[in-house]
Design a protein around this nucleic acid. Structure first.
Lengths: 188, 188
DNA sequence: CCTTCCTTTGTCAGTATCTGACACGAGTCA
DNA sequence: TGACTCGTGTCAGATACTGACAAAGGAAGG
């Protein structure tokens, strides 16, 4: 009876995306997803903690890439430049995930429950980046501030990139960080 | 049968806080809360959309205060200084809410579901601040960036204030915004 | 005082999320 | 061949919510 567990997990994710796109998140039950994947509702909840979690799976990969990139930046580099460099490193992965991300986007926009989970995933990433900065000797409070602010800047860059695909993500990234510097410079 | 609706609402909030503190969020049912407040589970869900929402109610007040404060800042002031001024305006309200906030804090820390909702409330506040900045003529993309970054800085200041009550919240606020300026200045 | 209307609550039935307990079947290794 | 493990199915159940309707209390007007 035990099938290939990884394959089942993948089928569940695909089925969830399809159904959320077809009927919307609220009108698809966990049983629906399981059915389309050829398993039972109970099996669904063995693979994913809840109905939201099936939608967010690439986050761990991005987290590892980013924390690794932060650690690889030359010592002595200041926190925000460090993060900017790390985000540049992540660009290929982002670009590679673009098709899936674009499919997910409208679903997330349409369902508050998924927006909340996306925010939570983002917060977890910020936490990981804070730790990565602290490992480089950045003071905790400064690390927390920079990680959060850096992540916001990155998110803005991604958003702009989505609205204006003419320019490269690298370009949007540098532009957003420049905006940040100019805006912060106006403080006193 | 109709009691004073506002009073029932308040009793539900108090009962929820008490029970979440006593047994934790997961081990208290909506029926428990309703019971302690002297009403039915159904009535609970008429006053609050879900079990999380009963925990977050002061947000609207803070939002109105902040957006109003942003609008009141002299024209021509740059976005981040505008936000800093607005946050200073909110200090009395924050200080007034401190006792309740301190009670809620450990509960939120202990329950992921409440953390998610807190993040969502925060995001809503950022959205409101973005609109308030746009109403002052700030370009949309810059407004979104500044609102998010400003809110992060504000959150950091509050966090530091909680850990170090020796200094005034005003002091922590200025300190956090200075940290932001210095950190961003390192970007090229 | 009585009637009418409106608002809030109670009751009930029902769906959906998620969990624990147990059994079954298919590979794996001795 | 037999024991073992792991993923799955089945079943029962608690809890979170929702819709529909009835009932109770207060306010307003006659």
């Amino acid at each position: 009876m035990p099938r290939n567990s990884d394959e089942v997990r993948l089928r569940l994710q695909e089925a969830a995306l399809e159904l959320y796109l077809e009927r919307g998140y609220d009108k698809t039950t966990a049983g629906d997803i399981a059915g389309r994947a050829g398993v039972t509702e109970r099996t669904f909840f063995r693979h994913f903690a809840d109905k939201r979690e099936v939608f967010f799976d690439g986050e761990a990969q991005l987290r590892e890439l980013l924390t690794g990139a932060v650690a690889a930046v030359p010592a002595g580099t200041k926190p925000l430049p460090t993060l900017r460099a790390a985000f540049h490193q992540a660009v290929p992965l982002i670009e590679h995930n673009l098709p899936v991300t674009e499919q997910r986007f409208p679903v997330i926009i349409a369902t508050p429950a998924l927006q909340e989970r996306a925010l939570a995933k983002n917060a977890a990433l910020v936490g990981a980046l804070t730790d990565a900065l602290r490992a480089r000797g950045v003071a905790e409070q400064l690390a927390a501030l920079c990680a959060q602010v850096g992540m916001d800047t990155y998110s803005i860059a991604i958003r702009r990139w989505g609205a204006d695909r003419a320019d490269d993500l690298h370009v949007h990234l540098d532009r957003a960080f420049t905006d940040l510097r100019l805006a912060a410079n106006a403080l006193k």
